[in-house]
Simulated assay, not measured.
Amino acid sequence: MRAVLCREYGPPSTLRVEVLPDPVPAPGQVLLRVEASGVNFPDTLIIEGRYQQKPPMPFVPGAEVCGIVAAQGEGVTWPALGTRVAAVITHGGFAEAVAVDAAKCVPVPEGVPPDAAAALCLAYGTVLHALEDRGALKAGETLLVLGASGGVGLAAIQIGRLLGARVIAAASSEEKLAACREAGAEGLIDYSRENWREGIRALTEGKGPDVVFDPVGGAFTEPAIRSIAWRGRYLIVGFAAGEIPRMPLNLVLLKNCAVTGVFYGEFARREPERNREILQRLFRWVAEGRLAPAVSRRLPLEGAAEALEMLAGRRATGKLVLLTHGAAAPRG
């Protein structure tokens, strides 16, 4: 099989596509012929040794896949051979084949193409878990999304709207905000400008957002929590800005708000049944035409380094997906 290999920690430019033996599924695993792999910000961290998990060298990055079951390990009766499934894993996805625990597999229904299924797993799974399970977002409430033009941010706009919320999107350029508007955001904030909190105040009539979805961190966190509504819920999703903020806890007290962590990978491991429900619901929304994953680019395996560089440089809008096994991979 062809695979993107990380032989030493470093930037995306150190990755190479190599030919490796197909993995052999262990007991309880299945072998997937990978059709599509989603590219995510944690992939940029794991190849630099800055992620929570550190696979032994050499390893194949890639944490969300969609593919066809080609072989079953000992003791596996489901999913059946030939079934299209999606799965969230730690690494191994940027390849033509990967061994995956059968328990992690979720069947992909008719009407959901492989690139959409791969794009849904991490970004959209994270968002639905965050907004419902951790943020208790209710219809009619206001949701502020930071880093709103990225793959997770656009997913938060779309899912927020499906849950009945009014969504305000914050991003750093007019081009990125245009993508947020297209995804369904009702309010737009350019946080590259000074006094961007004034825009939040105006859009919420001084009340502030009920829920803040923050995958960015850094210098944006404190202004956002200062803007949150009374009894608001602040969701810590990630630190794409590269800096873990130090939050003044007196703000939490004064706003009577909750600050909640969202660690989707660990949630999926500890609560697999609930995670399966989340992914099945997302797939239904796609099959019903209610949700279209915001895939902005589809690339071949050889484009993995380019995709990761775009994510690391915060130049990507929407989701990036790698395609394999004969699927056409347009550059745009």
Rank of each mutant, 00 (worst) to 15 (best):
A3S: 04
E8W: 13
E8F: 14
Y9G: 10
P11K: 09
E18Q: 12
L20D: 04
P23M: 05
V24G: 09
G28T: 00
Q29C: 11
Q29K: 11
V30M: 00
V30L: 00
L31H: 09
R33F: 03
R33D: 08
V34S: 06
V34Y: 06
V39N: 09
N40Y: 02
D43I: 03
D43M: 07
T44R: 06
L45A: 02
L45Y: 02
I47C: 09
I47Y: 07
G49F: 12
Q52Y: 14
V65T: 11
V65W: 07
W78A: 14
P79D: 08
V88E: 11
H91D: 14
G92V: 03
A95G: 05
A97D: 10
A102N: 02
A103I: 10
P114M: 01
D115C: 12
A117T: 00
L122T: 01
G125C: 03
V127R: 01
L131P: 13
E132Q: 15
R134W: 02
A136Q: 14
L137R: 02
T142R: 11
T142K: 09
L146I: 05
L146T: 04
A148I: 03
G150F: 04
G150K: 01
G150Q: 00
L154H: 13
I168Q: 00
A170T: 08
S172Q: 06
S173Q: 06
S173Y: 08
E174C: 09
E175K: 10
E182A: 15
A183C: 05
G187S: 05
L188Y: 12
Y191Q: 05
W196S: 05
W196Q: 07
I200Q: 01
R201Y: 11
R201Q: 11
L203T: 05
V211Q: 04
V212A: 08
F213T: 03
G217I: 00
E222R: 15
A224H: 08
I228T: 01
A229W: 03
R231I: 06
R231A: 11
V237M: 05
V237P: 02
E243L: 12
I244M: 14
P245A: 14
R246L: 14
M247Q: 10
M247A: 09
V252Y: 13
V259C: 09
V259T: 10
F267D: 02
R269Y: 08
R269C: 05
E271I: 12
P272H: 08
E273P: 06
N275E: 13
E277K: 11
E277M: 09
L279R: 07
Q280G: 12
L291R: 04
P293F: 05
V295K: 00
S296K: 03
R297F: 13
P300L: 01
G303N: 02
G303V: 01
E306K: 08
L308E: 00
E309W: 04
L311F: 02
G313P: 09
R315S: 06
T317P: 05
A327L: 15
A327E: 15
A328L: 14
A329C: 15
G332C: 14
